[in-house]
Each structure stands twice: as C-alpha cells, then as structure tokens.
Design a protein around this nucleic acid. Structure first.
Length: 678
DNA sequence: CGCGATCTAAACATCT
DNA sequence: TAGATGTTTAGATCGC
C-alpha cells in the first residue's frame, strides 16, 4: 500500500487516492477563485488589479464555459442536412452535459424534432451572445459613468482616469471581439440556420456591434469624462494596444463593420433594469428554470425572479466583465478552431474520396461545439482540476437511450460490440458522437495533449480532453481504458491505485461513483487474461498482455471492411461523418497506438474494430518492452490465468509479443483505409 | 434463443 | 480492525 502510494506520487497525480470521488481540484480551485473574484467587486481596485482579477476570472471561466460554449454554439445545425437520421444526433450530441434536460428531451424527439431543437438552440445561443455583448457594453458604460461620478466627488482625476481608461479599453476590446464573433456567427448561422430561424438570430446581430454605436459610446464616455477624449477613438485604440495588451487574450481584431450593421444597438445606455429587450417570456440567459449565466445555473421559478437574480448576481462587476470577455474569447477560439478543422476535414474527405461536393457539413453542426471544448482546453490544460460546471456535477450525461440513438445503430457497424454496448447503455449515441467530434475538431493541437502522446494518436488524445472535462461517460470498455492507462506509462505498468488515478484524471465521469467503477476496474483486471498482475519491488503492478488483449475479440471489423465501405457509401456524407466519428471514437483508445499514424483518418476508420484493431500498441516506440520494464521482469508473478499459458505461451514469458505485433497493426489500419478510400 | 462481451453488484479472501 | 486490493460469482443488457 505504501508502496503504491509512492508510485503514484511518481506519476505526480494531483488527485490523491481519495480524490477520486471528490473532484477535489475542481471544486477547490473554483471556489478559491470565486472568492477572490467576489472580493474584487468593490470597484476599489486599481486598473492593474482589475486586470489581474479579470485574468483570473478568465481562466476560471474559460474552464467553466468550455462545455457550455460548446453546447450553445454547437447548435448551428445544418439545415441542409440530408441525413437527418445521422446529422441530428450528431448535432444533438453537441450539447454539453449541462443540457441534460434538453437531452432528456431529445429522447423523446424525432430526428426532425431534434434538429429543430438544435436550430432553436442556435438561435438562442446567438441571442445570448448578443445579450452578453450588449449587456456588457451597457454595464461597462454604466460603470464608467458611475465611476465618473464617484471620481468627481472625490476629485481624484488621476485615479479615475485610469479606471476610465480601463473601462474604455475593455469596452473597445469587447466590441472589437464582438464584432468579429458576431460576424462569424452570423456567417455560420446563415449557413446552418433555416430561413425561419435566421429571423430570430440574424437581425439582432448587427445591433450588438455596430461600429457607429461603438463610437457613440466612446464619445459619450469621453464627454462625460470631460476629458478631451472626443477625438480619440483612435487614441483609445492605440492606448489599448499598448497598455492593455497584457490583459488581452484575444488577438487583435480588425475593425470590420458588419454588412448590415448600421445602427442597431438599440440603446446602449439603457438603464440596467432594462437590459433585456427580449420578450418577458424568453431570455437567452434563462432556460429550463435556471439562470444560464456561465457557471451560475441558479434556479429561478419565473422570469421575474430570474431578472431579479440577474440584476443582483450578475450585475456589472469585474467578474461579470471577465466572464463576458471569456465568453467572447471562447467564441473567437471556436471560430478559429472551426476554420482549421473544417479545412482538415475537407482534406480528409478529399483524401478518402468522399464527395467533395458535400462539404457543407464542414461548416456545420459539429464545428462549433467540438472546437469549443478543445480550443479552450488546450490553452489551459488542467490535468485534473477543471472546474466543472455545476450542472455537470449533478448530472452526468447519460440519459440518451439506445432507442433514441439514431446514430448508434446506423453508424456503428464499425463499432465493436464493446463500445456499442456502452454507447447504448450510456446514451452514448451522443457522447460517442461528441467524442468523435472532438476528435475531428480538436485535432491537431498535440500541444495540449498532455498525457497521451506517447501512445495515442493525437486525435484520440483530444477526445480525452473532452472527457477529462465533461462528465460524459467514455464510450470505451473498462478493459480498453485500463489497457490504455497502463500503456500510457513508460513502464507499461501501473498499480491499481495508479489506474484509478488515471481514470479520474482523464475522465470527469469517473470522478464520481468511485465505488462502482473501481469495483469494475478491479473486476476487469482480475477477469481478463490480458491484464497481468506482476509483483515487483513496489508491490503489485498491472500490465497488459497485448497478445491476449487482441485475442479477446476477433477482429470483426477487420474482416469486414466492406461493411464499412458500404455503410459509408450508403449513408452519404452525413452518415459517413457520424459513423466515421463513431468509428474514431471507438477505436480511439484501443488502437491508436500509432503515433506515426498521425493521419488519424486511417486509424480512425479502421479503428472501427474497436479494441481489436488495437492490435497493437505497436506503434509505440516505447513499445519495445511493455511489460518488460525493469521491475517487471523482477517478479513475474503472473495472474493465474488458467488458459493463459496454453493459449499464449509466449505472452507471459515473452516479453513482448508486442514487438511482433506492430507490423500486423500497421497493416490493418492501412488496409482498412484502402477499403474506405476506394 | 443461445452465446459472448460487458457492466454492475456483491461476497469473500488476502494483504498492509 | 479498517481499508485497499484481488478474486469470484451472479444477474442483467446488448448485439450477433
């Protein structure tokens, strides 16, 4: 025991043994920051302090918002999806765990309905963004004014000047970002929304950002300030670029006026009580009886209560401002990520000979969402302690039923039984899709793949980013996860406790119900021959007998590549997309061994066979001595597998069949690819 | 319907 | 003795 603890420490796992079920990092970190944040609301802070706090807030919020963003933004579902059966689920899947209620709703909705819902969500999201921007503008403005007042009274011109400047800067910055975001969103929504939907969202866009408004605001501020700033939009901007640069997270944005952005900002300086112009019955920040302000989720029985809540809890303060900024950054990141991923997907599709003519999907549904998660995560890659949105904490996303999963059935030919099962069981139609999406979009930022690079394909690893933060049950069997955990280490061996830690570290889902899944882990370790217990100096460690692991399941997919092919061709792009993603998801852990196989596309698809394909960890250079690790050899106390010996004489004794396997693996993927592409 | 894979739960044994 | 670690068994679901 002590020994194991020690070993654990080596892995430097933040979460202690018990941390498993408590999600310590998250709550702690979040709480701490909250506290500091609340303290700063006094408005007594200096500009520097303000910025500092905002940055903190930004970090915190970034984490909290990731999922939410993904959810909200995801909605730009494609109107032109020709494969509702597939597309819908996909888009639905984009909903984050926070949207549980909606997910539940999905269970009873038809694909078409779901699609409609998605679109509505998109509209909502856009509105929400608008509101954010608008509100922030107003609030900033108001705050500025109030500051001025205070300043006058105190006649502390200098100090006030700083604050004023800071606010102006904020405002300007925010508006700049806002402009771009809205433009992008608008663009996307145009693509993804149906005409009807467009009405809801588009019209409003311009109002939030019009340049003229911006100017006006600035002017006002300037006037009020009595400073000689009138001249200064230019001046301000220059100031911002310089002094404010530090706090700025988002890249400089060119001031581009919206196409139709004339006017609009209905009334930037409305009093705070009248911020919301939406019908009383609806508010972008209010839904399902709760406040949807990032990280809030306070329950509000009715709109009135909500408004009250909004004005009290989310009034203009540093925190709100920071949150808003974070939100904007998130959106921006999403945009960027979307562009990248779209490009990538296009290339992939081209490579696979998919109909290039149907590239629409690129801009569609998937994009926003997935990218959201990744994008954000990457930057601040918090190994464990990502603060989970409150919601997620209460409701892990599991609710989708197999029955509902349009996708699961259709797209899964590629998926191995294992995965599918899980999928069904855990509603994974969505989660799997989500996962797949993540893979697609997150992609190439190996930079933030902290743990998996060694063994996993970057894409897969990315999925982990998602699961690491979203309480979504990973669509992998315990066996595959355990294996992954073990293979993810240099020595290819882990103590039970380390395995636990890996689970909790890599999957938010496993930060709860520890008793259950831990039991399952132990059960799997004991049950499967592929897991070999080895006693060494440190104590007992578990290793993977790759050969045995592969043996476990016959390469279903491998044998029927045609199946995959047919499926793809038959379903059409959308379907392919989904299935492909599912396949990716499925294969992810198991197979990916191939670091070199960077072209996930190949591995992903073939991966359909789930673990089977896995065949190999091979790819790993480390592979060489999976279980041979020094300690390993020392005490090869293998599990008592009965058949073990018979079946694979070499397995145990032979250090690594793995070495041999690699080749096979490599081949597999490729062949699979071939089939697909052809 | 049977089978195999997987999950969950739980009892029990062993070790620290 | 308690808790962690392992092993087993049993019931249930799911897909083939």
């Amino acid at each position: 025991m002590m020994v194991e603890s020690a070993s654990e420490s080596i892995r430097s796992t933040p979460t202690s043994q018990n941390g498993v079920g408590t999600i310590p990092n998250q709550s702690d970190g979040g709480g701490a920051r909250e506290g500091s944040a609340s303290g700063e609301t006094n408005g007594e802070l200096s500009t520097a302090e303000l910025l500092h706090f905002q940055q903190q807030q930004a970090l915190q919020m970034a984490r909290q918002l990731l999922l939410q963003q993904a959810t909200g933004l995801s909605t730009p579902s494609s109107t032109e999806n020709k494969q509702p059966s597939v597309q819908v689920p996909v888009s639905v899947a984009m909903m984050s765990p926070q949207m549980i209620t909606q997910q539940q709703m999905q269970q009873i909705l038809s694909p078409a309905q779901l699609q409609a819902v998605m679109q509505q969500q998109q509209a909502l999201m856009l509105q929400q963004l608008q509101e954010y921007y608008k509100k922030q503008q107003e609030q900033l403005h108001l705050q500025l004014l109030s500051q001025q007042q205070a300043g006058k009274q105190q006649t502390k011109e200098a100090a006030l000047g700083n604050k004023h400047l800071a606010f102006q800067q904020q405002l300007l910055q925010m508006q700049q970002i806002q402009q771009q975001h809205l433009l992008n969103l608008q663009r996307q929504s145009l693509v993804g929304l149906q005409p009807g939907q467009g009405q809801v969202t588009l019209p409003g866009l311009p109002q939030a950002v019009s340049p003229s408004d911006l100017q006006q605001l600035l002017k006002e501020m300037s006037n009020n300030q009595e400073d000689s700033n009138k001249q200064d939009n230019s001046e301000l901007s220059s100031t911002i670029s310089t002094s404010f640069s530090s706090s700025k997270v988002s890249p400089p944005i060119v001031h581009t006026s919206l196409p139709n952005g004339q006017s609009a900002l209905q009334n930037p300086r409305r009093d705070s009580s009248s911020h919301y112009e939406l019908p009383p019955s609806s508010h972008p920040l209010y839904g399902h009886g709760e406040c949807r302000w990032p990280g809030c989720e306070a329950l509000c029985e009715d709109m009135g209560q909500f408004i009250k809540h909004l004005n009290t809890e989310h009034a203009l303060d540093d925190r709100s401002t920071a949150q808003c900024r974070v939100q904007m950054q998130v959106v921006q990141q999403l945009e960027i990520q979307l562009a990248k991923e779209s490009e990538r997907l296009q290339a992939m599709m081209t490579h696979l000979h998919m109909r290039p003519t149907e590239p629409k999907p690129f801009n569609q549904p998937l994009n926003l969402v997935s990218s959201a998660t990744h994008t954000k995560m990457s930057p601040d890659n918090y190994p464990d302690g990502l603060p989970q949105p409150p919601t997620s904490a209460t409701a892990p996303i599991t609710p989708m039923r197999a029955g509902t999963s349009v996708i699961s059935s259709s797209s899964l030919p590629s998926m191995g039984p294992v995965r599918r099962r899980i999928v069904d069981k855990f509603n994974t139609p969505i989660s799997s899709v989500l996962q797949a999406q993540n893979q697609l979009y997150s992609a190439r930022t190996p930079a933030y793949i902290s743990t998996f690079h060694s063994i996993l394909d970057p894409e897969l690893a990315q999925n982990h980013e998602f699961y690491k933060n979203a309480e979504v049950r990973p669509p992998f069997t315990y066996a595959s996860l355990i294996r992954q955990a073990i293979l993810d280490t240099p020595d290819r061996q882990l103590t039970l406790n380390e395995i636990y830690n890996w689970f909790t570290r890599m999957f938010a889902y496993f930060r709860r119900n520890t008793a259950t899944w831990k039991n399952a882990v132990r059960h799997n370790l004991s049950l499967h021959k592929c897991f070999v217990r080895v006693e060494n100096v440190k104590g007992a460690v578990w290793t993977v007998d790759e050969l045995e692991y592969q043996k476990r399941r016959p390469p279903k997919m491998t044998g029927s590549p045609t199946l995959v092919k047919n499926m793809i061709s038959g379903l059409g792009y959308g379907a392919l997309n989904a299935s492909y993603q599912a396949a990716l998801a499925e294969s992810s852990f198991p197979l990916l061994n191939s670091p070199p196989l960077h072209n996930s596309s190949g591995s992903g698809i073939h991966g359909g066979h789930d673990d089977v394909t896995s065949t190999g960890e091979p790819g790993n250079s480390n592979e060489s001595s999976p279980r041979l690790s020094p300690q390993y050899s020392q005490s090869v106390h293998v599990k008592e597998e009965p058949a073990e010996e018979d079946v694979r004489p070499a397995s145990l004794s032979v250090p690594n069949q793995n070495t041999a396997l690699p080749e096979d693996h490599d081949l597999e993927p490729e062949t699979a690819m071939e089939d697909l592409s052809s």
